[in-house]
Write a protein that binds this DNA or RNA. Structure first.
Ligand code: FES
Ligand code: FES
Lengths: 142, 142
DNA sequence: TCAATCATGAGTGACTCACTCAGGATTCCA
DNA sequence: TGGAATCCTGAGTGAGTCACTCATGATTGA
């Protein structure tokens, strides 16, 4: 029951990207170095993020990545769904799953559903801007 | 971000066990067959549950497993912690973890904390009796 | 033209998961 | 007293996943 390193790296790097208010695109190398991450691995991650529409890239010298929307409009929930795949604690309750045949008899489904729902609520309103600024700190730490 | 089959099998089998009100211990074979699970694998799981104090075993002919407490007093949260290990979305916020060195600068910790907290709340009051009876069905499914 | 950057795909070693296999120990009952 | 039923223990294994690395190509700006 752990999130992958992809998710951590992705969130970190995006937060760093959001931190730079510049309109200029930021090269991946800078993000990787400032966060101490593998450049090549981060590249993979940013490809996903680009395909999902969170960042755009400009090639060539002075190229790099930039956010396509202001950080205030990017939900952590959406990011994690992209980075991590469906945020479901069990296959049976994944959103892309056909209705499970065991539904009528199943005692565990209610547990998975409740877990999923609570996770969605927890990060459904958190934005990239918030975590970049660290502002939800107090409320998040109970 | 998936729970393991151990958790599913464990919950299922325990719910089945709770379903039989008999004072007699129930042999593992019956539980495994009624739920369609591998007997040997379920055995491993029940060893853990025994060591964690949720069930007790009686050996020999007419032996089997029984709950040590009424199902109403067994929290799903505790079961999942036993079956799944620490219910933390990231190592850094596992309870057995020493305080993470990056805490002061870390932008992701708040996300992990919020996720963990919400999961705990979601299943912190669910009991084995409830899921065995399927009574939380309506509330769990939104 | 060349350096900086993104783009793409294949490969890999370590690890985990969901089991199986093999055999032993304890207890009840005929 | 013997054997059947059950729990107990530990080792092994094939498939899959994870967190990367490697190699190479494409695009752009100076
Ligand atoms: S496994 Fe799908 S309903 Fe329980
Ligand atoms: S990784 Fe531990 S505080 Fe962020």
């Amino acid at each position: 029951m752990r999130l992958s390193a992809r998710s951590e790296y992705g969130l970190r790097a995006l937060a760093a990207l959001a931190g730079r208010e510049a309109a200029e695109p930021v090269p991946l190398r800078q993000l990787a170095q400032s966060e101490g991450l593998s450049e090549q691995f981060l590249e993979q991650i940013f490809m996903e993020l680009r395909k999902a529409g969170f960042v755009s890239s400009t090639r060539g010298a002075h190229g790099g990545y930039s956010l396509t929307r202001p950080a205030e409009e990017i939900l952590i929930f959406d990011l994690l769904e992209t980075l991590e795949g469906d945020l479901a604690p069990y296959e049976c309750v994944a959103t892309d799953q056909p209705e499970c045949m065991q539904v009528p008899f199943c005692v565990t489904r209610q547990v998975w559903l409740k877990l999923r729902e609570s996770m969605q609520q927890a990060i459904g309103t958190m934005t990239l801007a918030e975590i970049a600024a660290g502002r939800t700190w107090e409320t998040a730490s109970r």
